[in-house]
Write a protein that binds this DNA or RNA. Structure first.
Lengths: 279, 279
DNA sequence: AGAAGCTGTCTGCTTTTTGATACAATTAGG
DNA sequence: CCTAATTGTATCAAAAAGCAGACAGCTTCT
């Protein structure tokens, strides 16, 4: 009755090996078992093993040497963009990198309850729904779906949205963003979103949901964002302090750094002159 | 040369529909196109469409009514556990929920460079590598791989690790955790990790990497954690304040709450009758 | 009541993926 | 130098996934 959709064996083995590599179970430089050995060990044919290894090699996780074996590569040290906890992209600006926004969709619609409820909307109140993709150095890294109450959305134009950060638009219109709550999770991209992010469908992405409130307690923005994990990561630093007699972690402002995999202790920063851009 | 591993059509369609549902493109209560319509629209057979819808129905995202159609369900309101930005589980404890830990692996090994470097280890220095799964109410939600310098790991026993939080163990031994840096991302689980988390291989998970330092600047813990997104989420609250003349977001301590998407006091769940303290 | 449209189920066929096997080219070690 | 082990490549067979079509039962609307 239930289909269950077994995962392709190639993909399955790929994920398994990839897992062992990224978690450090097999260290860089070490040799993987031979293809026939892997085939027997996992009950698949050598052809399938090869396909899985092909994928790993494409990603630069392993290197194959004819006659010798397949070896784990040193981490390619790809450096995702790092955002601090407040998700401010001022880091990027400081680094002088070019960000651009592409507006994919813009309309006023009746919101589903899952949007209307956290925004505290009256029944029947409409929202502005917009979908944007943000690029850095010409490459997409985030897919943003925002819902804004109609009364607020009307204070700026579609053209504004394609060029100016949403929160900045709202603050220009006199709307005061006072409080926000956000949660970070993970999900898979569908084919449409994948295409917009230049990803393969089914790739994992970071998922962020944020609601911004004005002082009255009413919601002014509902954001659902997806981030490419290879180009973006959330980084946060903490210090252990005594608060009311108890040891607690308190967050500190993270410094801009090009590396995420091996985050180094902070460095003296250059002063920010430009205003921050938000997703 | 490139295998590329095309995604199964069923899975592809499943992801696409799921995407439209969770992003609110199609609201709860609305009817999806009929199976023949979906089949034609996406160039697949009706059998494939059915399989994709089966998956959605299993997840509770849609409800199928014979003779009528397939309808988007109201959000299943699965409420993941919420951790505040500092990733402290005190929330859970306060909520009186039973957490347990299963120790899967424990050994002293030579660390790969990706671990040794952020920890600031001398060449040749060994580390204690442990793999644990954390359960809540008997169900696994996190998979933790920790690397600790040998000199620190020796201050507690394998048995200790299976029962007491690592940071607490270290502080008991006089090690001072002063600073930490962590980054959050997303990835896919391999078959082994998937089994430990009771997930299907290839499912998306939240990935967290954290390094904790002592006052001397040396690293005392390297943590690589994977979280089930349906049972765990990172939530953080912010307030907009004036700092040095500029408006900035500053984090506040998140309140313990059972809801992630919509902050609303939820009904009490079942009482924690069985508590599984494991060795 | 009747018609139209929908989901549920089954069957045979086609396409894609995986498997088994053989062999060539390269490397490392005795 | 020779041997054993490794990856690279090709071919054909087997298994799995997908497809097209038909039909039954239920729901909704005319």
């Amino acid at each position: 009755m239930t289909a269950a959709v077994e995962l392709l064996k190639t993909r399955r083995l790929y994920l398994l090996l990839r897992d062992r590599i990224v978690t450090g179970a097999v260290g860089p430089g070490s040799r993987l078992p031979s293809e026939p050995a892997l085939a027997q060990e996992h009950g698949v044919s050598r052809v399938t093993v090869r396909r899985a290894l092909d994928l790993l090699a494409e990603e630069g996780l392993v290197r194959r040497r004819v006659g010798s074996g397949t070896f784990v590569e040193d981490p390619p040290a790809s450096r995702p963009i790092v955002a601090d906890f407040s998700n401010v992209l001022s880091n990027l600006i400081e680094m002088g990198r070019a960000t651009a926004v592409k507006l994919l969709s813009f309309a006023y619609v009746a919101p589903p309850a899952s949007i209307a409820e956290p925004l505290g909307l009256e029944p029947g109140e409409r929202v502005q729904r917009s979908v944007r993709v943000r690029l850095i150095d010409g490459q997409p890294f985030s897919y943003l779906t925002t819902h804004v109450p109609e009364r607020i959305g009307l204070t700026y134009s579609e053209r504004d949205l394609a060029t100016i950060p949403l929160l900045e638009l709202m603050e220009r219109s006199g709307i005061v963003a006072e409080r926000a709550t956000q949660s970070i999770s993970a999900t898979l991209v569908g084919p449409e979103t994948a295409a917009a992010l230049d990803l393969a469908p089914g790739s994992p992405v970071i998922s962020l949901t944020r609601v911004v409130y004005e002082p009255s307690g009413r919601g002014v923005e509902h954001l659902h964002a997806l981030y490419r994990p290879d180009r973006y990561a959330f980084q946060m630093d903490f210090v252990r302090t005594d608060v009311a007699g108890a040891r607690r972690w308190t967050p500190t402002v993270v410094q801009a750094s090009r590396t995420a995999s091996s985050p180094r202790p902070s460095r003296p920063k250059r002063t920010a002159s430009q205003k921050g851009t938000r997703p």
